[in-house]
Amino acid sequence: MTYDRLVCANCAAPVSQGRCPVCRANRERLQQQEGPFAGLNPVTLIALLVVLVGALALVARTA
């Protein structure tokens, strides 16, 4: 889950806006946990997976 959809229980604002100290702390914590694919949406990840499976099938067929 990305923090742009989270709502703070302290100030009832989106965490991505960082209006209160709790929002800012959680935003920083979530940003530190992001991996290399954190910025990609699920549709893009599925498309990459399909391309990878297709490439593997092509390599397996020619070998």
Rank of each mutant, 00 (worst) to 15 (best):
M1L: 10
M1K: 07
T2Q: 11
Y3V: 04
D4Y: 11
D4W: 09
D4Q: 10
R5H: 13
R5T: 09
L6K: 13
L6I: 05
L6C: 05
V7N: 03
V7T: 12
V7L: 08
C8Y: 00
C8E: 00
C8N: 00
C8D: 00
C8F: 00
C8K: 00
A9K: 15
A9E: 10
A9N: 12
N10Q: 15
N10E: 12
N10P: 01
N10F: 10
C11S: 04
A12W: 10
A12K: 14
A13F: 06
P14T: 05
V15G: 00
V15C: 00
V15D: 00
S16R: 09
S16E: 12
S16C: 09
Q17L: 14
G18N: 02
G18H: 01
R19A: 05
R19W: 06
C20Y: 02
C20E: 02
C20G: 02
P21L: 06
P21F: 07
P21K: 09
P21R: 09
V22E: 06
V22S: 07
V22Q: 11
V22H: 06
V22Y: 02
C23I: 01
R24Q: 14
R24P: 00
R24N: 01
R24F: 01
A25R: 15
A25H: 13
A25Y: 07
A25T: 11
N26H: 14
N26A: 11
N26K: 15
R27G: 03
R27H: 04
R27F: 02
E28R: 15
E28S: 10
E28F: 06
E28I: 04
R29A: 15
R29Y: 09
R29D: 08
R29K: 14
R29T: 09
L30G: 00
L30Y: 02
L30F: 08
Q31W: 01
Q32D: 06
Q33A: 13
E34N: 06
E34A: 09
G35A: 08
G35Y: 01
P36M: 10
P36A: 14
F37D: 12
F37M: 11
A38D: 06
A38C: 02
A38N: 03
A38V: 02
G39S: 10
G39M: 03
G39F: 03
L40S: 10
N41W: 05
P42D: 13
P42M: 05
V43E: 15
T44H: 08
L45F: 05
A47W: 09
A47H: 09
L48D: 07
L49I: 04
V50L: 14
V50Q: 07
V51Y: 04
V51L: 15
L52T: 11
L52V: 09
L52C: 12
V53L: 15
V53G: 05
G54P: 00
G54L: 15
G54M: 10
G54A: 14
A55V: 13
A55F: 15
L56K: 04
L56I: 08
L56T: 04
L56G: 14
A57Y: 03
A57Q: 03
A57W: 05
L58V: 08
V59W: 14
V59I: 13
R61L: 12
R61Y: 13
T62A: 11
T62C: 04
T62E: 10
T62H: 13
A63D: 08
A63Q: 11
